[in-house]
Design a protein around this nucleic acid. Sequence first.
DNA 1: CGAGTCCTGTGT
DNA 2: ACACAGGACTCG
Length: 314
Amino acid sequence: MPELPEVETIVRGLRPLVTGRRILDAELPSAGAKGSGSSVLRRILREPEWQNPGDFARAIRGASITGVRRHGKQLLFDLRLPNGQGATRTWLVHLGMTGRLTCENTPEARSPHTHLILSLDHPGRWLHYTDIRRFGRWQLLDVPDGAVCSLGPDPMEVGFPEFARLLRARRSMLKSLLLDQHFLRGLGNIYADESLFRARLHPAALAARLDRKQARKLYDGIRKTLRLAIAAGGSSIANYVDGLGNAGYFQHEHQVYQRTGDPCLRCGTRIRRMIIASRSTHFCPRCQRAGRPVHRPVHRPVHRATPLLRKGIA
DNA sequence: CGAGTCCTGTGT
DNA sequence: ACACAGGACTCG
């Protein structure tokens, strides 16, 4: 569910609530539950070193949270361990499709899909991790930026010359490229479609074939979309809420995402949906013509069209 | 590149 | 019953 604007909103909300706090206790309500033969937590805790989810809880219990950051779609909690001489770890959280991190005023699980409850040394504050589909992932990193540096630049930080250079090196379709975290980190299905609409570029256009002007429109389209989305607190469609449990409202400003068949807000043409990179892709066939692939018919018609038919086609 | 996989929930 | 959902990995 959460893409860059949602994760940024969560980080901004949680930062003042958890920075400087100590983790008094870590509970894993689903650790004992049976799911496909083993603990339902095994997947979220993808580290092989956590034979037992209790080891994870033990590892972070007593640690102090010294900072909260965003890296693409991932949240990073910097921890100072209790016993070591300033030993540190970074708890990496990827929320997948349905992950939530929220501050609650109770240590009781709010849902059967709550998988972690951290008690913080602040009266009335518990940090809950909830994830219905369990596509989320946690890692505990030794190095603050380890295992994370292979991703592409942050779209809000990259400069245009660098962006244009990266673009030129890619052969894939724009939609696939924007979803690729090794190209840019942070975009997902919503903001890829919304960015391409603002850039007026066809999602199936080939990256390497864009001229400088089109590359500029894409760059600007991405940044404007993300800036507006962050300002709106992200998009809440089914599951997303921020760290305080509040919904975002950028979904009301979506131009194309999940608007199949509705009129384009700019030209009135019906929004179309197609599948690219196995993902739903929404676009306006009139506003987003630039760079669209030429469709050559595989079979040539055996008979020429009659003049009357030609008229109809033209 | 596409297809399948991991999951649960919702809407037709 | 089926399609689809904000992500990302592996396979051929």
